[in-house]
């Protein structure tokens, strides 16, 4: 699992322990998305994806952290966020990525929906140890 950050990137780490933290993550991602000049639609998609994943971290992972910051490659800039928890992990990733499948009473759109909203989506999970989800939205 490689982190999206390069030297010089300066991601901030936020804890996700309460429902109010999910609101804060949305605000943090909005500020970063505006800083990167993402289009309004892309901003909205990125914030929504982050909201879904932060809620997953809280509900299924029993809390964890989010690192968020600006990333860049040769020609473009983007917003990246890494959601980490040390919860039960996901036993069947394919099943968890299916629309409508849920283990916790939600709509089952969190993971699959978030993946459709962003440009890069990486999921790393070890049953019994935890889950890490990395997402990036690039400015066009």
């Amino acid at each position: 699992m490689t982190a999206p950050w390069a030297a010089g990137d300066d991601p901030q780490v936020y804890s996700v322990a309460r429902s109010a933290d999910v609101v804060q993550i949305r605000q943090v991602i909005r500020a970063l998305a505006q800083q990167c000049r993402l289009s309004l639609v892309d901003q909205t998609k990125m914030i929504t994806a982050a909201s879904e994943l932060a809620r997953n971290t809280l509900t299924y992972g029993g809390g964890g952290t989010v690192s968020a910051g600006v990333v860049s490659d040769a020609s473009k800039r983007g917003v990246a966020a890494v959601f980490e928890d040390s919860g039960p992990g996901i036993a069947d990733v394919d099943q968890a990525m299916t629309d409508g499948w849920t283990s916790g009473g939600g709509l089952g759109l969190g993971l699959s929906g978030a993946r459709r909203l962003v440009d890069d989506f990486r999921l790393h999970t070890v049953p019994g140890e935890g889950t890490t989800v990395t997402i990036i939205k690039w400015a066009r």
Binding site: L40, V41, Q43, T44, K45, T48, E52, D99, L107, L109, S112, G113, A114, R116, L117
Partner: peptide, 14 residues
Amino acid sequence: MRPAVAITLVELGL
């Protein structure tokens, strides 16, 4: 509902 919100909800699958 704002346009960007509507587009995002549809993409999300809702």
